[in-house]
């Protein structure tokens, strides 16, 4: 397929995934900030939301203070924020138009319909919390429908695999960023200083990767921070964990390699990261430092993106 087509499919999937992640982040932050201060401590949760979205610096170029109103506006609707939900959907549609021939009509319909609704229903943003909640649901449903139609209707060929690469790379980045911002509340028992205040932080982290229910099914335990870290990093049954994302990245890259009859740097690099995750234990990760581990992962994940681009997309 054309390199440009592969590139558009890859970015299309990334934008849709990012839009959903932003919607979940805002939703989880709204929940935790609705609790009385006594339950959540003094930290500004809207600041963490900006950090996990990776847009803190650009935000403070425009606003003085991270309040609910300013952060929600910036993350959801602001044209000034290149990765606001609105811009993600706009970009997803632009990419879709460029690769209409590679999309099934169901996928196009999802993105084009979302883009029409974005203008007609959400053109003026969300005026109330109730409207905002509706908007965030709307965004999450876009990615569910998009993903579902890709899964159910796309031919299993390189077009599908490249779009999966975009999705899992973006997803791994998102999960890693939450961990990066919140790692201090996920330390093991003996290092733990936060006490019961952190309980609501933990649920908030799990909510933003839609894993609160999953946690209970996997561990059959009350919330323990080190288990949350284990779930998000190493448990490959959770679709948003780093291990699961890398399992998928390796699988899809392998399929491309087989179809093209050639392996390359992208396959090797992805396999290296996956092997490291497979052979890690939470004890060792804590020993060496969660923060350092995550930082290294984010850098590795970014590098995979560059290698894929060089090998296939340019």
């Amino acid at each position: 397929m054309l390199s440009r087509t592969a590139e558009n499919l890859y970015w299309l999937a990334r934008y849709v995934e990012r839009a959903e992640y932003l919607a979940r982040t805002i939703e989880a932050t709204l929940r935790v900030t609705a609790l009385p201060n006594a339950y959540t401590g003094q930290g500004n949760e809207w600041d963490s939301a900006l950090l996990t979205a990776g847009v803190s610096a650009s935000f403070y170029g425009l606003y003085d203070e991270a309040t609910e109103a300013s952060v929600v506006e910036y993350l959801s609707f602001s044209p000034a924020n290149p990765s606001s939900i609105r811009n993600c959907i706009e970009n997803a549609r632009l990419n879709s138009r460029s690769v209409r021939t590679a999309l099934t009509s169901e996928m196009w319909d999802t993105i084009n319909g979302a883009w029409i609704d974005l203008q007609e229903i959400w053109g003026k943003g969300a005026k109330t919390r109730e409207e905002l909640t509706k908007f965030l649901r709307f965004v999450q449903e876009i990615s569910l429908r998009f993903d579902g139609s890709a899964y159910r209707t796309m031919l299993r060929n390189d077009a599908y695999w490249f779009s999966r690469l975009g999705l899992h790379l973006e997803r791994a980045d998102n999960t890693a960023r939450i961990l990066d911002v919140k790692y201090h509340v996920l330390l093991p028992e003996e290092e733990h200083v936060g006490g019961p205040l952190d309980y609501y932080q933990w649920t908030s982290i799990l909510r933003s990767v839609s894993a609160l229910t999953a946690y209970h099914w996997v561990y059959r335990e009350t919330l323990k921070p080190w288990l949350i870290a284990d779930l998000l990093i190493l448990n490959d049954t959770l679709p948003r964990s780093l291990a699961s994302c890398y399992g998928n990245l390796v699988r899809n890259l392998d399929q491309i390699g087989v179809a093209y009859g050639r392996q390359g740097a992208a396959q090797r690099h992805a396999r290296g990261v996956r092997n490291r995750l497979e052979h890690s234990h939470m004890d060792d990760i804590f020993q060496r430092g969660v923060h350092e581990f995550i930082q290294e992962f984010i850098a590795d994940n970014g590098r995979l993106g560059e290698i894929i681009a060089k090998q296939y997309l340019i």
């Binding site: 397929m1 054309l2 390199s3 440009r4 087509t5 138009r97 209409r100 021939t101």
Partner: peptide
Amino acid sequence: SFLADKLGVELVEGRD
């Protein structure tokens, strides 16, 4: 894009 799809041929731009 419609025709490329119906013809089953690549839709290329100059840069491709």
